[in-house]
Design a protein around this nucleic acid. Structure first.
Lengths: 130, 130
DNA sequence: TAAAATGCCTTAGTGCACTAGTGCACTGCG
DNA sequence: CGCAGTGCACTAGTGCACTAAGGCATTTTA
């Protein structure tokens, strides 16, 4: 497990991403497995709170369950379905971004248009579109 | 011209977006046209610096040219080509986001995956991919 | 039951994006 | 020349995301 503190991507996101990959690959089976907050913290050289932040994400996504005093446990019931959806999204985003870059659109512009697109789409969802 | 200060999208971006739309629609022709910093500032009820920030974006994109003491002038040579590319990007982003949402992926997760996708794609571009 | 290990909560510090305030330099026009 | 209007640079304040530090509650285990 490697971490790059200088990356613009937050450390806790890097950790969450790698954990997601390992879980979907079956490295961490259903049951206990996941290393404790402090153990993983000293291994990566970060604050335990940063690890907690990553675990929090996985908990909200429902692919993991935490028991105070005991540890972190993998639920992994249906990560297959959402996993495929995320894989589609990952590829779609990559294709869209690559196309935009070759079209000469600047990275900052792409980021701005993404923010606006998200904002618009979420507003439409509020009004009962879906 | 309307502005929403409560929106998560920065005010200067809202202004820049609306100006871009107006220019591409020909409301602001090649020549002078664009209202001055302070005039537009009092009209929208924001600081002149915020307007300047929007003008700065359009200047970097080359669709406008500013002359100190005189005003802002529309160049509008080839906004047609990049305009089409941006339109494609806008649609592609919207389709991608809508698909992800209907697949049950959370907005925060979409934002995170977009950040990572941008990061990865830009790293590849550095190494001579394009 | 007592000790150790675990996850969790609260607080603080840092950096960055955004906006406002103020003054300066330049241009146009009478 | 002088005045009004223009864009621009510098500074300050605010809010937010990220990380760190420390202490607390809970569970396990011997």
């Amino acid at each position: 497990m490697l971490i790059d503190p200088k990356s613009p991507i937050p450390v806790y996101q890097q950790i969450a991403t790698q954990l997601r990959r390992r879980i979907s690959k079956g490295i961490y089976q259903s049951g206990e497995s996941l290393p404790s907050l402090r153990v993983l913290a000293v291994e990566l050289g970060v604050n335990p709170n940063t690890i907690h932040r990553a675990y929090e994400e996985l908990t909200r996504e429902g692919i993991v369950e935490s028991r105070r005093g005991a540890g972190l446990f993998v639920t992994a019931s249906e990560p297959a379905a959402t996993g495929r959806a995320e894989l589609r999204l990952e590829h779609s985003l990559d294709r869209t971004i690559q196309r935009a870059l070759t079209d000469g659109i600047s990275p900052e512009r792409i980021r701005v248009m993404f923010r606006e697109a998200m904002h618009n789409r979420l507003e439409k969802s509020m009004k009962g579109d879906a």
